[in-house]
Write a protein that binds this DNA or RNA. Sequence first.
RNA 1: CGGGACAUAGCGCAGUUCGGUUAGCGCGCCUGCCUUGGGAGCAGGAGGCCGCAGGUUCAAAUCCUGCUGUCCCGACCA
Length: 477
Amino acid sequence: MAKQNITPRAEDYAQWYIDVVLQSKLADYAPVKGCMVIRPNGYGLWENIQKTLDEMFKETGHENAYFPLLIPESFLKKEAEHVEGFAPELAVMTHAGGKKLEEPYVLRPTSETIIWSTYKKWIQSYRDLPILINQWANVFRWEMRTRLFLRTTEFLWQEGHTAHATFEEAEEETLKMLGVYRNFAENFMAMPVYVGKKTNKEKFAGAVTTYCIEPMMQDKKALQAGTSHNLGQNFAKAFDVTFQTKEGKLEHVFATSWGVSTRLIGGIVMAHSDDNGLVIPPKLSVIQAVWIPIFNKDNQEKITGKVKELTQTWKNEGIKFKIDDRDNYKPGWKFNEWELQGVPLRIELGPKDLEQNQVVIARRDTNEKVAVSFENVTQTVKNLLVTIQNDLFTKALNFRNDNTFVTDDYKFMLKKSDEDNGFYKIHWCGNRACEDNLQEMGKITIRCIPLNNEQENGKCIVCGEASKERVIAAKSY
RNA sequence: CGGGACAUAGCGCAGUUCGGUUAGCGCGCCUGCCUUGGGAGCAGGAGGCCGCAGGUUCAAAUCCUGCUGUCCCGACCA
């Protein structure tokens, strides 16, 4: 066989993505439309994502709980905007136990309604607040068009649901979790993100304010990678959740919700990978370094023995590694296989190296190879893992900056966006009509209004009305 | 949900136009030998309800109808 048969990015980006996901064994298609099997490679990544985020949630005072998958249909209908937003994508259970159900159950598209119906029972006084709960769960959204990890009918996520005594406290929580997401995206996924507020058109159905993180993928489109909502009193009012204040007054509770999903895995693929397959940031990689001993029958024992000796301390050092000593595959085959699966470092040890007391270390992200003496292997590997993590971020940041354009010329933007994707920093008057026009004319949406945005007087790129700041606009997933 | 393409061995494909022995090829897989520093070589072998369900016919991978799934393009969304 030639090399792997991954469609090059330049030729067909969408097909490249599918090829990488399937061939690197992240996922496989399932028998049901829009569903996928998350394979060990993909699930291992998800477990690392979960583990890291879960610690961050705990550190910020949250606890995990679990609410049921099935939600009475009537619950969804209690919050008008909410039901309107989700109605088209609901999967509904109508029969059970061989009978038609009195009231259909909805497979949760998100859990605000069932959680707030429960919080009603738990909250009486300001002393019961705040409630800071997260749940790891699956959700169902019947999407018209699905894509592995990016949009599937069933997906895994976490959803935080908190209850507070004041709007300010809810807002603080919303922004705090947005910060957690930003930290995770940038420092673990090595994916620079714009952090900002959604427009009314783009916000969550039922939220007062939606905040988000938006990274750029390698095709220069935006991916909504995480959202954090200040729900105000909308759900508390819909479910009549009130509490008694210190002063004895009855008030509706303030809510937030925030989530990231297995879509992040699609983000990792699209942010860093190349035509040879996956590239995974070291901090999230299930295997950080793979050893490929190069041997024949005569020296096999000697060489694998040396590898074991050199890695004796690695478990304690916290380096996640694997020794690929299969004798039914040749080294060259293994090189390609592990590259395809995105392992950050490959370490070769063959007879020639043994003679010279060295190993050869190859970086997945740059393909660079260096010879390193036995005594320096451990430290070099540790350093390289840090370097790769940083380099991936820098590379992605430079890529985003190179493809972000500040413009006041609508025609230029539409023309440019027609030829190639990119982020545009544009003035916008704040009106829905102009936002709709962007979408109609260029399939461009306003991804966010950046937080701590530089204030600058300008004119809306569509209508020319006054604007005080620039927003991020782009085509998106 | 509209438009288009596709579905034959684990993967990639040929065969379908114009129905006709036992459905092929490459890679992979199994056995053995030989090999091992960028997807080695030779020999032998296993593997198929031709996506599913109906129909037409003496005869269907091939023709007809329905369904399901995947991909692409649109409208909708994390």
